[in-house]
Simulated assay, not measured.
Amino acid sequence: MIDPSTGFTKMDMVRYYAKVGPLMLQHLKARPVALVRAPGGVPGELFFQKHQEAEALPGMRSLDPALDEGHAPLLEVVSPQGLRSGSQMNVIEYHTWNALKDRMERPDRLTFDLDPGEGVAWADVREGTRLLRVLLQGLGLPAFLKTSGGKGLHVVVPLKRLRDWDTVKDFSRAIVLHLAETIPQRFVAKSGPRNRVGRIFVDYLRNGRGATTVSAWSARARPGMGVSVPVGWEELDALTSAAHWNVRNIDARLGVGNGPWQAYEEAAVSLTPAMKALGFRPG
């Protein structure tokens, strides 16, 4: 039993990843992955695994140790068998880096995680997501949307691989600071539950080297087992929660698949014009 609240079992987990695997592998391809393992199911203790602990599981590949010196090799999921192997080892969640393995020091995306504090209504989360998109559009940055499967929403900006980690993270922080200074009644730039009561923390820390974000189509290790799903901006108003889709109702979404992100790769941009527009100077 993985999730007593839904009756979801380990075999159900295998079947779930068999269904979503073809869609999910498009988001996992060539990216280092971190695994969230739940040997005791959702109610038990969770383990976050970023490096190979023993031999790589079938369908997973050990990456060059030089990519993360001083640690065991990072992992990549390379086939549907890797998802089956993960389920056998009690993996529920898959998180990915903001870079591809062939150019690890040049991030290929910005990720913003809208994390609502206590007392923030879901309608306010949707509104906050729209406001972030307006700011990004004003900076000339394309924005793609997905549910987190947890509490908030994720906004992702595809990048040309031109800048280093520090520059990308510092610029994402500048964006969030600007948002919090402009609309302080809605946003806060400091993490921590006390800081975001009644407001949304837009988490830019996901943009640092080694940080990860849950992959599209990953289930979440929470009661109800929500799923992170790519969505179109025109669908935002219809979303009822960050866990609008879960492991039990996901079949209705498989036909749409990755369609809302169809133009993602072609949309990648340089950060230079946006930096100039915001008055940001790389350190």
Rank of each mutant, 00 (worst) to 15 (best):
R31F: 04
G192H: 13
N195T: 12
W245E: 01
A143E: 01
P4E: 09
L35K: 08
S172R: 03
A216P: 05
G255V: 05
H95M: 07
T96C: 11
L139W: 09
L159T: 07
A99K: 00
I250N: 02
P73N: 06
T9V: 10
L177E: 13
R126K: 15
E234A: 14
D68T: 03
A263R: 14
S172W: 00
T167Q: 13
A274W: 03
Q185G: 15
V120S: 01
H154S: 02
E235L: 01
R194A: 15
P58E: 08
R61G: 00
P4Y: 12
T213M: 11
D113T: 11
R196I: 00
D164W: 02
L236A: 04
G70N: 06
D108R: 01
G232E: 01
S218N: 11
V188I: 13
P32I: 03
N207H: 07
R130A: 12
D64G: 04
R31H: 06
D64M: 02
E234W: 06
G150W: 01
R130H: 05
L254K: 10
K29F: 07
R206F: 03
P116D: 00
G283H: 13
A242Y: 09
G257Y: 08
D170R: 15
K10C: 07
L35Y: 12
A121M: 10
D251I: 04
V14K: 15
L139K: 11
R253Q: 11
L271Y: 03
L145D: 02
V256I: 14
I250Q: 02
V120M: 01
L177W: 07
R253P: 00
G232M: 04
H95A: 07
L136G: 06
E69R: 15
V269I: 12
A277P: 03
G128S: 06
W97K: 09
L28V: 05
D170N: 14
V125Y: 00
G138H: 08
G283F: 02
G44N: 08
I200H: 03
H71T: 10
L177D: 12
